[in-house]
Amino acid sequence: MGTMGCKAFLDQLDSWIEGERTPDARTHVAGCRRCRSVADDLTAISSTARSMAGTPEPPAYLWNSIRARLEEEGIIREPHPAVTPECQAFLDQLDSWIAGEKQPDARAHAAGCPGCRGLAEDFDVIATAARALGNETAEPPAYLWNSIRAQLEDEGLIRKPQPEAVALPGKGWFAWLGLPRPALAGVFAAVLAVIGLVASGPITRQINDYRWMRGTQRSANKLNAQLDRVEHATVASVGADPLVAAALHKNLAIVDNYISLCEKSVRENPQSEMARDFLYDAYQQKADLLAQMTEQGE
C-alpha cells in the first residue's frame, strides 16, 4: 500500500479532488479499497459540482433518477426554465443567499424568475430547518441527511460505509465520507445545490416520515411473511419434551410481544434509527428461535 497511510491520504484529499495526485497518494489509493471508494465517490460528486458551474443542471442520469423518485412522491414542481445569464449570476451568489445576504439584484431576479425563486425558497427551508436544529453549524437536520443518504445509496450514487472502519477525521456524515470539514464545504454546497435544484418542492418531516414508514414497512412485511410461514410449519412440530416445548412457546410469545412493541414504536416515530434497529433485532431473534424450534422438531 506504499508509505502513505489512510490518515495522510485523507489529510490531502482536498488536493486529490482538485486533481493534484501525488505518486504516494496514487499508490495508496491503488492498494486501499476504502480510500479508493471514498476518493471515487468524492471525485464523482466534485465532477457533478464542476459540471453544475457551467450548466446549472445536474447530469441527466442524476436528474432522471431523482426526478423519477420525486415524481413518485408527488412533490416535484415544474422544471427550471432556460438558464439565462441573470440566472447564472444568481446561482453564482447562492452561497451568500443561503447565508442570509440577499442582495437587491438577487432579490429582484428571484422575484421575476420562478425557477430561481423555487430554488431559493427550498434553500431557505433547508437553512431554516438547520437553524431550528440548534447546531453549531448550518448543517441540514439529521433526518434530511438520512433521507438524502438513503436516497443516494438507493440510487447507487454513493456507497454504504464499509464495515472495516478506519479512524477518520470529522464527524457524522462528513466522517463517513472521510473528509475534513473545510474540504467538504464545496462538496457540501454542491450536493445541497443538486438536492435543491431537483427537490424543487418543500421537503417536510411528514414526507420523510412517510418515506421511512414505507421503507420500513416494505422490509418488515417481507420479513413478517417469511417468519409467519416458518412459524406455521414449526410450532406444531416442536419436540417431545413438554418442558422444552413450553419454554420455546413462552419465549416465542415474548419475542412476538417484543416485535409488536417495536413496530408500534416505529409507527410512532418512523425515522427513529434506534426503534428500527430494535425492530430488526426482534425479527432476528424470532428467526433464530424458529430455527432452534425447527431443530427441536427434527
Binding site: 439529521a142 441527511w145 464527524k171 466522517a175 434506534m274
Partner: peptide
C-alpha cells in the same frame, strides 16, 4: 466536544 451525528438523539 462536538456533537456526533452517529450518536442517537433518541430516548
Amino acid at each position: 466536544r462536538r456533537s456526533d451525528r452517529s450518536m442517537p438523539r433518541e430516548g
